[in-house]
Amino acid sequence: MNKNKILIVEDDIVFCKLLTRFLTKNDFQVLDAQAGKEALNLLESNSFDLAILDYRLPDMNGIDILKKIKGKENNTKIILMTRYGDEGIANKAVSEGADAFVSKPINPTELLEVIKGL
């Protein structure tokens, strides 16, 4: 599967930009958002092969965004990021259609392996 266009939704700006730079260097086209509303605006005007969603955002949670993506574009793969210990949230995300989840703190190289495995 071609996963060239990625949406990252992460409210920690430094971490978000770190992931964006890392994935761009690995030949992905990446757009990012720091809030759910901003992500939904990007989804209105773009189609993504993959979305990497933080669960905890200032204005909504990652599962809300996941549902919007799956309602619009069912081919988009979803990775949900949760803090270590949030396995219940991760299980809910998978039941809602997430393809994978990763626990924070995230090692970018390990995230790249998850992406390649989708």
Rank of each mutant, 00 (worst) to 15 (best):
residue 94 V to E: 02
residue 57 L to C: 09
residue 12 D to E: 15
residue 66 L to C: 04
residue 23 L to G: 07
residue 53 L to C: 04
residue 8 I to F: 04
residue 31 L to E: 12
residue 65 I to W: 11
residue 115 I to E: 03
residue 86 D to N: 12
residue 28 F to E: 01
residue 100 A to V: 00
residue 98 A to N: 06
residue 3 K to H: 08
residue 87 E to G: 03
residue 36 G to P: 08
residue 30 V to S: 00
residue 51 A to T: 11
residue 48 F to Q: 08
residue 111 L to E: 00
residue 90 A to Q: 05
residue 71 G to I: 07
residue 13 I to M: 01
residue 82 T to D: 10
residue 25 K to L: 14
residue 20 T to I: 04
residue 51 A to W: 13
residue 35 A to C: 14
residue 87 E to P: 04
residue 9 V to D: 08
residue 68 K to T: 13
residue 19 L to S: 04
residue 41 N to H: 14
residue 36 G to S: 05
residue 50 L to G: 08
residue 81 M to L: 15
residue 53 L to V: 09
residue 9 V to R: 03
residue 76 T to K: 08
residue 79 I to C: 14
residue 16 C to G: 10
residue 114 V to N: 02
residue 72 K to A: 06
residue 42 L to N: 10
residue 83 R to D: 12
residue 37 K to Q: 15
residue 58 P to D: 03
residue 54 D to S: 07
residue 98 A to T: 04
residue 111 L to W: 03
residue 28 F to H: 15
residue 98 A to V: 02
residue 20 T to P: 05
residue 77 K to A: 15
residue 110 E to G: 00
residue 116 K to S: 10
residue 52 I to S: 09
residue 36 G to K: 02
residue 75 N to C: 00
residue 14 V to S: 02
residue 49 D to M: 06
residue 42 L to Q: 13
residue 82 T to R: 09
residue 35 A to K: 15
residue 4 N to F: 02
residue 18 L to C: 11
residue 115 I to M: 01
residue 12 D to H: 14
residue 45 S to K: 10
residue 39 A to Y: 15
residue 109 T to Q: 08
residue 83 R to Y: 01
residue 7 L to R: 02
residue 103 S to P: 11
residue 46 N to L: 10
residue 83 R to T: 13
residue 79 I to F: 14
residue 113 E to K: 11
residue 69 I to Q: 00
residue 103 S to K: 14
residue 77 K to L: 14
residue 12 D to M: 10
residue 73 E to Y: 06
residue 49 D to C: 10
residue 54 D to F: 03
residue 8 I to E: 02
residue 18 L to G: 07
residue 1 M to F: 06
residue 87 E to I: 15
